[in-house]
């Protein structure tokens, strides 16, 4: 019979001091998941300015004066937006790395070292995020 590990009620956040690595991984995965789906709706809403832009004259499109280009260019010129994009990258990278960890555990790989792979996910997320900052900020100033 497969054994289940009694972790207590993780939804009871007042117990956070007792949480172990795997429980933090679970919370971070949920949190980053909520952020990503929220962003997906926002992303499509912003990109939808491409619909009216398609009706602009060829001259306006060639000159980048259509509503889509103008919307994206003005958003990307804001430092706050660039910083939020770095945050989005961090959130996405963690969700991807921890998601890989979860897929591997479901395939029978790495359950015994699941706490170590969580810490590795965190460190790698930090490294990839920091390394990407110059590219993400380029042209914002």
């Amino acid at each position: 019979m497969s054994q289940s590990y009694n972790r207590g009620l993780i939804e009871d956040f007042s117990r956070w001091r007792e949480f172990e690595a795997g429980m933090w991984a679970w919370i971070f995965h949920k949190f980053t998941g909520w952020v990503l789906i929220g962003y997906l709706f926002t992303h499509i809403a912003v990109l939808s300015t491409g619909i009216p832009a398609a009706g602009a004259s060829e001259a306006a499109i060639m000159a980048g004066e259509d509503v889509y280009t103008q919307t994206i260019v003005s958003l990307e010129s804001l430092l706050l937006v660039r910083l939020l994009e770095v945050g989005l990258l961090a959130v996405a990278v963690f969700h991807m790395l921890n998601g890989t960890r979860l897929l591997l555990v479901d395939l029978g790989v790495g359950l015994e070292s699941q706490n170590k792979s969580f810490y590795a996910s965190l460190i790698l997320t930090g490294a990839i995020t920091v390394a990407s900052v110059p590219t993400f900020i380029a042209g914002a100033f």
Partner: peptide, 21 residues
């Protein structure tokens, strides 16, 4: 695909180069 998406639209192309074209 998400890794490809990030790589293509932030590292190959850049955020301040976006245009309808």
């Amino acid at each position: 695909v998400l890794a490809f998406h990030f790589f293509l639209l932030h590292f190959v192309h850049h955020a301040d180069e976006v245009s309808f074209l």
